[in-house]
Amino acid sequence: MKSPLSMLVAVLSGLLVLAGYFFPFPALIAIRTPMLDWAVTLAGIAGLVAIINLMVGVHLKRLREPGSKRFFSIVVIISFLMVAVFGFYLGPADQKFQRVVTAIQTPIETSLMALLAITLTYSSLKMLQRQRNWMGFVFFLSVILFLVINSGILAFSAEIPVLQDLLSGFHQIPAAGARGILLGIALGSLAAGVRILIGSDKPYSG
């Protein structure tokens, strides 16, 4: 059962913030600014709640279950506790603390990025098996074409005016396509926002 009070609060808050954006009168700004500040604070607290949920609900629970994943949960819990303790004690802006965290995080994420490059290359090769239609074929050809154009192989085209104009035209195609997709996304986002502001979509129960 959805609470009418929570819906009323959500709709009114949304409308006030939106009105403050469209009509920046001092009275509306005075309401809008603290409301947005509260939202940022609430998002921070929600992050903390979600981390506790992950640690207690998932990883601590897994410690009681047999299986190889128990070891990974122990590593996650110990890492979390160490970061939390030192983070609270030294403060998140502390240079040494940041250096240690970055020295662990950056190599891991860089390795994952490298893994992603291999995964995507393999998936692109397999794409024609999955997308056996003209859209898949056009997509594959476009990928090859723009890889060639952006690789620098055609750098000599600067001396051939016709080829340069042709390549310049090709560079406009992705921008035009992206603009079309972004217009659709903008309309869809507007629809999603309107549905929430008129109270028909309620991703909360109150």
Binding site: L120, S123, S124, M127, R130, Q131, F139, G180, I181, L182, L183, G184, I185, L187, G188, S189, A191, A192
Partner: peptide, 14 residues
């Protein structure tokens, strides 16, 4: 588009 079985392009997701 390259990896999923079905992709929602643009506003199709909404």
């Amino acid at each position: 588009f390259a990896v999923a079985d079905d992709t929602l392009i643009g506003e199709e997701m909404f």
